[in-house]
Design a binder for these strands. Structure first.
Lengths: 136, 136
DNA sequence: TTTAATGTAACAATTTTTGTTACATTAAAA
DNA sequence: TTTTAATGTAACAAAAATTGTTACATTAAA
C-alpha cells in the first residue's frame, strides 16, 4: 500500500462518526481532507458497498454512517481499500528450471497470507469509535 | 508496498542460503528471478549495507550470505526494502481549520506505527533458514 | 421548475516502480 | 602485463500505479 486510500477512508468515517445523524456532503468532506470531491465520492461508493455508510442523492444528499461506530472495526475499512499485500508483489515469472525459482511463488503465497492475516487481526481489535475518541 | 522488492530480496537470499560457500554472480541470480542483473546488484548493495550479504568485485566476484541463515530473520529483509508503511500514506495537507483535519495525521501516525510494529514482530519470528527448508 | 446533491465515465497529470544502457573500477587468470 | 569477467552506480527510459479533473446524467428536495 503506497497510497492514501486508507487515510482518506478513515478520515471520511471519522468525520461521519463525529457528527452522527448529519448527512455530510462530499464537498464538505473533501475540504477537510483537502482532496477532490470526486475522490471522496468514489471512496464513499465503495464504503457503501461494504455496508459501512449510507449515501443519498438529490438536494440534501450526502453520507452518514450505516452502523454504530463501536461496531465498525478497522479491518473492515482496510479490506475496502486494500489492493496489494503487505509484503508487495511476487516476481511474475521466476525461472522454472531453477529449483528455487520453480516454487518460490508458492512459498511466498504462504508467507504473504500469514502476514496479511496478522494485520487484519490487529485491525479487527480496533474500533472506529475508539479511534475517534482519541481526538480531543 | 506495491512492488516486488521483498520478493526479489528474499529470492536472492534463498539462493545464497541454498548454496552456501559459493559466490553467486548477479547474472546467475537474475536468471533465476527473471529480472535484469542491475536490479539484483542494486538490491545486493542494500542487503550488503544491512550486513546480510558479502559481495566482492573482480573476476570470480559475486555474493554470499554474510551470516548463518538461522540468524537472519525476515524482518531484517523487510527493513531493507521497506519504503512505505503497511497502511500507506497520509494525506499531505488536511484542513487545519477542521478539528478532525487538524490532528488526524498525528492519530494516523500512532495507528500506522502500531501496525508496522506488529508486522515487524511477526517477521522477526521467521528465519531465512526456516523459509529455505520449505523447498523440497 | 430550479437547485444542489450523488454516481460515474473518461481522461490527464503525477508519482512510483521497473528496466536498460553505459562505463568506471576491481581483481583473477592467462 | 594484458585480458577477462565481475561489481557499483549513474543516468535515463518505459511501464504501471496513483491521484486529480472535467463533464454530465440522474436524483430528489425546495
Amino acid at each position: 500500500m503506497n497510497n492514501t486510500r486508507f487515510a482518506t477512508a478513515l478520515h471520511i468515517l471519522t468525520l461521519l462518526a463525529a457528527s452522527e445523524e448529519e448527512w455530510l456532503n462530499s464537498e464538505w468532506i473533501a475540504a477537510s481532507i483537502n482532496v477532490n470531491p470526486v475522490v471522496v465520492r468514489r471512496e464513499l461508493s465503495l464504503l457503501g458497498e461494504a455496508g459501512l455508510v449510507n449515501t443519498r442523492k438529490g438536494k440534501t444528499g450526502g453520507a452518514t454512517l450505516a452502523r454504530n461506530s463501536a461496531s465498525i472495526t478497522l479491518d473492515a475499512i482496510y479490506l475496502v481499500v486494500k489492493n496489494s499485500e503487505v509484503l508487495g508483489k511476487r516476481n511474475v515469472k521466476p525461472n522454472p528450471n531453477c529449483p528455487i525459482g520453480k516454487t518460490i511463488n508458492q512459498q511466498l503465497d504462504n508467507l504473504f497470507s500469514t502476514i496479511d492475516d496478522s494485520v487484519i487481526k490487529e485491525l479487527k481489535s480496533k474500533t472506529l469509535k475508539n479511534f475517534v475518541s482519541e481526538f480531543h
